[in-house]
Design a protein around this nucleic acid. Structure first.
Lengths: 212, 212
DNA sequence: GGATTAACGGAGATTTGCTCTCCGGTTATC
DNA sequence: GATAACCGGAGAGCAAATCTCCGTTAATCC
């Protein structure tokens, strides 16, 4: 186990890095449906090389997506550090949405398409922070009474089509529809929402179901 | 061409009807990705039979989806017949959304997944009616000034994930999120939306892009 | 009720697209 | 310059869907 192993060749190390970089780009642009061959081509390498560095597509995807998912936790905690409850919530929505708009693979992972359960490990932390962020805003009276933390997940799921539109029409278009939904989330003199929120236990189902 | 052709056999006629019925059910439940084999099985018939009645999957899908799409035109015109501009718009949203919540194939078709251009023929009529419906409401001051008719299409696209959630959690859940977005559409003392609407010519792109 | 003929059923040929392997050729390292 | 690790990419192996073929079944007509 502790054999005096010769250091990796320099081209090997360099190629591994190229592959990870290429994977980031390819998953961001084409989603997790992208092929390892696509990644190899983007990296300027052969498929064989890709498979020597990673046992399969899942492995490289997991590596890239873990990085991206962990950023969401950071976003949530930074949002909690903002004093104004509304501003904090909005900041979380905008940063996290911006990441997903720029990274199709991240959206697909967060909405449970492709079973990369790196995300399952991180999930509870995101849920905890977002719930706190939401409850703080609702207690402060800047969110309508009949909204629930689960609605945050639903809003992200619904932003998916907006991200897709943004890709083909205007990179910032999703901001328009996020703003629209946030306006709907604020208190107003309107009838209550016609259906109760999904049960909190259904959080996973909320996201996972959005694939179809 | 005008040969005295013998009338079709009764089982043949009956089977064709069974296939169309089965196709409606299967596309509604599984979307347009469903297989002709799936449809044949649902109809209790063999694949060969399905392919004798329809040259390919596209043909039977087109027939079923045309019916469903034409209903949207009816919805729009009925909504225009409602006196109150806001109520009319809401009625259109609710009826059309209800159809899509119950029919996954219809949502996919309207959002331009799968190239069933039966819909392309009907499209202009839907656009014309919905634009009128929208403008009427906006002129009446019941919709915020900075909204645009194109936003209707975007809202329908964004309901897609809500329909998916409804399928697995609560069949009426989409009504909650439609209500949320409609509340966001009403006039309120809020900053204007941060990004302009997509150009009217991009209407197709708005919907078609939502597939990914 | 038997002959005729169209329709049925479903196994499987074909196509398509992705995953992953194999091995001759190349190159970093010593 | 020798050696061992690495590279490239053709193609083998799968999986899933589309569509065909033809032996079997049954509706229709007399």
């Amino acid at each position: 186990m502790s054999e005096p192993t010769r250091p990796a060749r320099r081209d090997s190390v360099r190629n591994r890095e190229r592959l990870v970089t290429a994977a980031r780009e390819v998953f961001a642009e084409h989603g997790i449906g992208a092929t390892l061959d696509d990644i190899a081509r983007q990296a300027g390498l052969g498929t064989g090389t890709a498979y020597r560095h990673f046992p399969n597509k899942h492995a490289i995807a997991a590596e890239v997506l873990r990085e991206a998912t962990e950023q969401i936790v950071v976003d949530a905690d930074e949002a909690l550090a903002v004093d104004d409850p509304w501003d904090g919530l909005v900041q979380f929505f905008e940063r996290t949405a911006a990441r997903q708009a720029a990274d199709r693979g991240l959206y697909e992972t967060l909405t449970g398409q492709g079973d990369y359960d790196e995300q399952a490990r991180i999930w509870p932390r995101i849920v905890a922070s977002v719930t706190e962020l939401f409850n703080r805003a609702q207690s402060a009276g800047v969110i309508r009474e009949d909204a629930a933390p689960q609605d945050v997940a639903a809003i992200f799921a619904m932003l998916g089509p907006a991200f897709a539109m943004s890709r083909t029409i205007d990179p910032d278009l999703w901001r328009r529809y996020l703003a629209l939904m946030l306006d709907g989330l604020r208190p107003a003199d309107r009838p209550p929402l016609p259906v109760g929120p999904p049960p909190a236990e259904a959080l996973d189902a909320i996201l996972r179901s959005s694939k179809g």
